[in-house]
Write a protein that binds this DNA or RNA. Structure first.
Lengths: 343, 343
DNA sequence: TATAAAAATACAATCGATTGTATTTTTATT
DNA sequence: AATAAAAATACAATCGATTGTATTTTTATA
């Protein structure tokens, strides 16, 4: 009987009022008397009216929607960051559109276009491994759409980001291995054009330096840190003419596959080689030996990033302020690093 | 200099043509001559024009967007289903809005409202554990928005779904334990108002029956299958006056926490108690002993569900056809079930 | 009761793109 | 060159809600 798409005009016609009055009533404007307001609300409810946000957003030029771009939602860190983002957004009345770049620059580009076309009010990004330049972000800036990087970021002027202190975390992880008695520590790094990996690596170097240990390029393995990379790195390490007794990997995925590959080759963890990962994936607590790793508070990072972005949306004068929030990451000490050599 | 939001009217004014011509040119309509088309496209590109999908969608009454509602994206099964959904959608020109119900009915309700307000063309749902009735889905139907359940579904008439054969999978899991020599098998189930858990449980019962094994209500533990539930269930099991030597859990999370709790209590897995889980979370391959489980092909399920939904969107006469697609799940045999009692 | 002030509601433009119809321009045919 | 047919483009309504301004109605005051 009633059409499947009810509009304010339908309600207006039925009640013999103007559609503007209906609109105001449904938005609880003081310009409509309580009595008509009630009539309108009742009728709207009766007909199952549901506002068309497309029309509303078009007119208001505001969507109350944030775009989120992450490499993949299946990574523990990203899904917990998204949970944090959603928590904040939900409380402050924003919707969230989630996009995956799948680590591909082209996808990331498309994601941005989609978000712009849908006129999101702001964007939260953790960039793909392929992302080296920031021209596609300039499009956001030109359109005055604020964006905030979280975790994986680019070093663009006048851009905000919410990060952990990767240098410090890399330093802590490495120093932990040193304290546990490791004397030859390899480092698995990600693509070096990404700030986070660069910084973790710098932390690694700084820890070596502090403890008067020799640094060698040969012990840095840069890759995309996928499962296969951990295996490949281990295969190279065990071919080296000297003994490596510690590994600091810039993510858990590579750390774990390395751990398994070492076990397959008869190495004892942590006695022969101690390992520290990065990110604290769920799996790391459960593998044997359990993996010492750096906990990145994903939920917190997401929350803070969303808060920062929304504050920039709200305060248009703060739009392209350079604001960096650094959150402390902490070492989670587990079994894989209990090297404890007698020496 | 140029305003930050370029519209077709801006382009039209500059080139001295009508905005309708600009619109047609940008949509590659045959009604615009090649020459003007090129002029318009060039200018649009020069100005960094980006269509306002809000306006376009409003006018066309079609958003080319699918809504997806899942309990949480951090579960391996759901994130791989989403990957499958995105793959199909991306190829067929659809965007995807992902919502999490966080297992809460109220959130699921809000999710639906948001998706309706944003006028998605269709919805893919895997319901929350709290969801018992389907009144909020009736709203979708009234508005002629097609929806497809995947995995966790409700038994609503004239509704499509993409499922695995939970009965068969439950049967296979249980029979596997029986073949391995288990004689007293407990079952961890989810909320019984959810079809999937009901069916897995029925499969469990059927396997017992086939092998002339006694079924006892006491050995069915219904919960939300969270980590704590696995622990609680184990605590109850070890208090029983008889010996349980097998567990079939309707998800991996509970299976794994049970496994750990059993180990903490000095039980040997699989010698004392064999365990089979469900879902094949990443963690299951890595825990020790590795967990035998049922692999749910999440990516495939997502793909098929998106295909089905889009076909219903495209064929409006197929809108509320009852179409069930059943995908086969398979047992992944690992260490936790190698019971092999001599008897 | 007239009149001003205030309250309630109606009118109409607008957001940006799409699309059916009308008009103008071009091309083809005699 | 005249005319019809076809091609290209312009006009104008529309999608559904919002919002500034204008008008009507109600209330308060003299």
């Amino acid at each position: 009987m009633s059409p499947d798409k009810i509009t304010i005009h339908d309600i207006a016609r039925i009640l013999n009022v103007d559609s503007s009055t209906v609109s105001r009533a449904l938005n609880d404007s003081p310009r409509v008397t309580e009595k008509t307001k009630n009539r309108i609300i009742a009728k709207a409810h009766e007909l199952g009216y549901q506002r068309n946000d497309l029309a509303s957003n078009l007119r208001k030029n505001k969507t109350n929607t944030l775009g989120v771009i992450v490499p993949r939602i299946s990574r523990h860190f990203f899904s917990s960051a998204i949970a944090g983002i959603e928590e904040t957004s939900y409380n402050l009345g924003y919707n969230v559109i989630i996009c995956q770049s799948l680590e591909q620059l082209e996808r990331e580009h498309n994601n941005i276009n989609t978000l712009v076309a849908n006129r999101v009010d702001g964007v939260l990004v953790s960039i793909s491994m392929e992302t080296k330049n920031y021209e596609h972000f300039e499009g956001l800036r030109k359109r005055k759409i604020p964006f905030v990087f979280f975790d994986r970021h680019l070093d663009i002027p006048d851009t905000s980001s919410v990060l952990i202190d990767d240098f410090q975390a890399g330093f802590d992880a490495t120093e932990h291995l040193i304290i546990k008695g490791c004397e030859k520590i390899a480092h698995f790094s990600g693509p070096m054009h990404l700030e986070i990996y660069k910084n973790r690596c710098e932390g690694y170097k700084a820890a070596l330096l502090k403890h008067d240990m020799e640094f060698s390029e040969e012990l840095i393995f840069s890759s995309r840190l996928m499962e296969q990379d951990g295996v490949d790195n281990v295969n190279k390490i065990i071919e080296l003419p000297y003994k490596v007794d510690g590994i600091f990997s810039a993510n858990d995925v590579a750390a774990i596959s390395a751990l398994q590959q070492l076990k397959r080759n008869g190495y004892k963890i942590p006695e022969d080689i101690a390992i520290v990962g990065f990110s604290n994936e769920a799996i790391s607590a459960v593998i044997e030996p359990s993996l010492t790793t750096i906990n990145q508070p994903g939920f917190d990072i997401g929350k803070r990033a969303a808060e920062l972005l929304i504050s920039q949306i709200t305060n248009s004068n703060k739009n392209f302020i350079n604001e960096k929030i650094v959150i402390q990451a902490s070492l989670v000490e587990r079994d894989s690093s209990q090297h404890n050599m007698a020496f």
